Simulated assay, not measured.
Amino acid sequence: MKTVYVIKTGEQYLHHAEDGDIGMAPEIDGAMSFSSREEAERAANEHAPTEYEIVAISVKADKR
């Protein structure tokens, strides 16, 4: 398992759309993830509304 960070804004999560735009996803499964809290903080400061929360989640690590 590894820890990644997502940005929660109210009831939604910051999401990277296929067309390159940054939007909002209603579920955590659609959230953009970051490998460090600092990276998530930079993205939140640039793209999230003023009220946000950085959430740490555990995910299965890729077998490579």
Rank of each mutant, 00 (worst) to 15 (best):
8 K>V: 08
23 G>S: 12
12 Q>D: 02
41 E>R: 13
62 D>A: 12
14 L>P: 08
60 K>A: 11
18 E>K: 09
49 P>V: 00
10 G>Y: 03
8 K>S: 06
47 H>A: 03
25 A>P: 00
8 K>P: 04
52 Y>I: 01
48 A>D: 13
46 E>K: 15
12 Q>H: 09
5 Y>T: 08
52 Y>T: 00
4 V>A: 08
39 E>G: 04
29 D>C: 15
6 V>N: 07
38 E>F: 05
3 T>V: 05
21 D>F: 06
19 D>F: 13
25 A>H: 09
3 T>N: 12
4 V>R: 06
53 E>S: 01
32 M>A: 13
55 V>Y: 01
36 S>G: 07
63 K>N: 12
30 G>I: 10
55 V>R: 10
13 Y>P: 00
20 G>S: 08
42 R>M: 12
51 E>G: 14
17 A>H: 12
3 T>W: 01
50 T>K: 00
64 R>Q: 14
48 A>T: 12
10 G>V: 07
20 G>L: 06
9 T>M: 15
13 Y>H: 06
51 E>W: 08
23 G>V: 10
15 H>K: 10
60 K>C: 02
53 E>G: 01
1 M>I: 12
57 I>R: 04
14 L>S: 04
51 E>D: 15
11 E>P: 02
47 H>K: 03
47 H>Y: 10
60 K>P: 04
53 E>Y: 00
58 S>E: 15
64 R>H: 08
5 Y>V: 07
60 K>F: 05
43 A>H: 09
64 R>E: 14
25 A>R: 08
50 T>V: 10
21 D>V: 03
33 S>R: 03
56 A>E: 15
23 G>L: 03
7 I>V: 15
3 T>P: 01
10 G>H: 04
59 V>G: 01
1 M>T: 12
22 I>F: 08
22 I>P: 01
56 A>P: 15
10 G>L: 08
35 S>G: 07
15 H>M: 05
55 V>M: 04
53 E>F: 00
9 T>W: 02
13 Y>Q: 08
40 A>E: 06
17 A>V: 08
57 I>P: 07
59 V>K: 11
62 D>P: 14
27 E>P: 01
37 R>W: 11
25 A>V: 02
46 E>S: 06
36 S>K: 01
36 S>A: 02
60 K>T: 11
59 V>P: 04
37 R>T: 08
17 A>W: 04
15 H>Y: 05
53 E>H: 02
35 S>D: 15
18 E>W: 05
11 E>R: 15
6 V>F: 07
20 G>P: 07
27 E>N: 13
4 V>W: 07
53 E>K: 06
13 Y>W: 15
17 A>K: 14
49 P>L: 00
43 A>T: 11
24 M>T: 14
48 A>Q: 12
27 E>I: 10
20 G>K: 09
17 A>R: 14
11 E>L: 13
14 L>N: 03
24 M>I: 03
21 D>Y: 06
33 S>N: 03
29 D>S: 15
6 V>Q: 05
30 G>F: 13
63 K>D: 14
46 E>F: 08
6 V>E: 02
64 R>C: 09
57 I>A: 05
60 K>S: 10
46 E>Y: 12
22 I>T: 09
45 N>C: 13
37 R>Q: 13
38 E>L: 12
47 H>G: 00
32 M>K: 11
35 S>Y: 06
